[in-house]
Write a protein that binds this DNA or RNA. Structure first.
Length: 294
DNA sequence: TAAGTTCTCCGCCAAG
DNA sequence: ATCTTGGCGGAGAACT
């Protein structure tokens, strides 16, 4: 495809490494991808590259990161923005849409839906270019305050709460085993109540939800290995019951693990299929999995 | 902070 | 043999 200025991916990661899987998927689908690493100013790159779409990829959105997104929208309002976040909250999603983010994704990202959205945007942008670019007016747009949780997370520098750092690193090291919140709280030197409240306050999700997301995120990556069975992946990421794993995976990803594995293996084998055929596949799958929780 | 209640997670089981 | 779906109940987490 390789349309126009391509896709600009702006990584804004506080603690996690960016997940490059999405970039690989986009490149396989023929999109030209430009990346801005965490800590680099995206605006000069946006102005130089003039991407058809810019995608802000966060693990835990902080104040400067969200302010950057808003600034990008103000400076270049005609460029549609996509937002990906690991730490999701309702108010963050509302903020994103008020900031006129085109679409909002929560990790682990449903790549099929993501690529379908990308395809639609490229089509719309190409049509707009032919018909003459029309900039959306922003003058007089009311200020859209960043939600309180983001302010809290804004101070979440790795050093600002060593107790929670212990918890995060414990989860990273013990994802494959049973993670009991009370034990983690104990390791952090906090009572279960203190830990629970602090964690939710800081990350916007409960500890359980965080662990679950990490497990599913890891499972989506592991399922790309053709040698690994769904059962292998299930036990490797800390689930002890295949039925529960299947249900949970489908709830988060919108596909069963085997469907996801098949999709990843096919996309690897084909080295990037045409977006048109992908969109058709996506339609079938999203219809089938429309009850999935985003 | 502790206690009680409600909700959600998680694993077992069975059927397909 | 592997995987999905659904019901069920205990345990633990979240909330008041």
């Amino acid at each position: 495809m390789g349309a126009g200025g391509g896709v600009l991916v702006v990584a804004r990661h506080i603690r996690e490494q960016p997940n490059d899987e999405l970039v690989r998927c986009m490149e396989k689908d023929g999109y030209r991808v430009h990346q801005v690493a965490t800590g680099h100013d995206p605006l000069p790159v946006m102005e130089r590259v003039k991407p058809l779409v810019t995608c802000f990829q966060y693990d835990y959105p902080d104040l400067p990161g969200l302010a950057e997104l808003r600034l990008a929208k103000e400076r270049m309002p005609s460029i549609p923005l996509l937002m990906i976040t690991q730490a999701h909250s309702e108010s963050l999603a509302v903020w994103a849409f008020r900031a006129r983010v085109w679409d909002y994704f929560v990790e682990p990202v449903d790549t099929v839906r993501f690529l379908a959205v990308l395809k639609l945007l490229f089509r719309l942008r190409s049509a707009a270019k032919k018909g003459g670019a029309r900039q959306l007016p922003i003058a007089g747009m009311p200020t859209n305050p960043i939600p309180p949780e983001a302010r809290v997370r804004g101070s979440a520098e790795p050093r600002d709460n060593p107790a929670l750092e212990l918890a995060i690193s414990y989860v990273d090291r013990n994802l494959h085993t049973k993670v009991v919140q009370a034990a983690v709280a104990d390791i952090c030197g906090l009572s279960p109540f203190q830990f629970s409240r602090l964690f939710k306050h800081r990350f916007g999700v409960t500890f359980q939800e965080y662990v679950l997301r990490k497990r599913i995120s890891q499972a989506t990556r592991m399922l790309g290995d053709p040698g690994a069975t769904v059962t292998d992946v299930c036990y490797n990421v800390g689930f002890h019951d295949l039925s529960y794993f299947t249900r949970t995976f489908q709830r988060y990803v919108g596909r069963t693990p085997s469907q996801h594995r098949l999709m990843m293996i096919r996309s690897r084998r084909q080295g990037g299929s045409k977006p048109e055929s992908r969109a058709k596949q996506q339609q079938v799958r999203t219809d089938a999995g429309s009850k999935a929780v985003s």
